[in-house]
Amino acid sequence: MNFIFDNDRPIYIQLVEQLEIYIISGQIKSGEKLPSVRELALKTKVNPNTMQKALVELEDLKLIYTERTNGKYVTKDQKLLDKFKDKYAREKTKKYINEMQELGFIDPEIIEILKEESI
């Protein structure tokens, strides 16, 4: 796992976003146990308090859950993971379409380019 931050936005929000991608892409597997807050903080080189805040947020989103005394695990709810994945895909796609439209492309042209570029 590799984390990149910019200092312009709250660090905990960026942690949530990046951990979310690792989870929905399966790089951290469904049902997998997460390392401790401390280990995660050291790995990502952030303050443990900031990491704790990010994990609370992920838990609110139900992407991870706490098993009492045992630590934190990634959700096993495949439907939820699919939902997040779909939401992410749509956000990315909307952003791409907006950028293309700003450049002056119209939808059929954008679709044509997508077809040509995807293998």
Binding site: D6, N7, D8, R9, P10, I11, Y12
Partner: peptide
Amino acid sequence: ADKLREKENSSIDE
């Protein structure tokens, strides 16, 4: 620190 970044939309340095 994070609240300040959120409020000002910039880094602490900025």
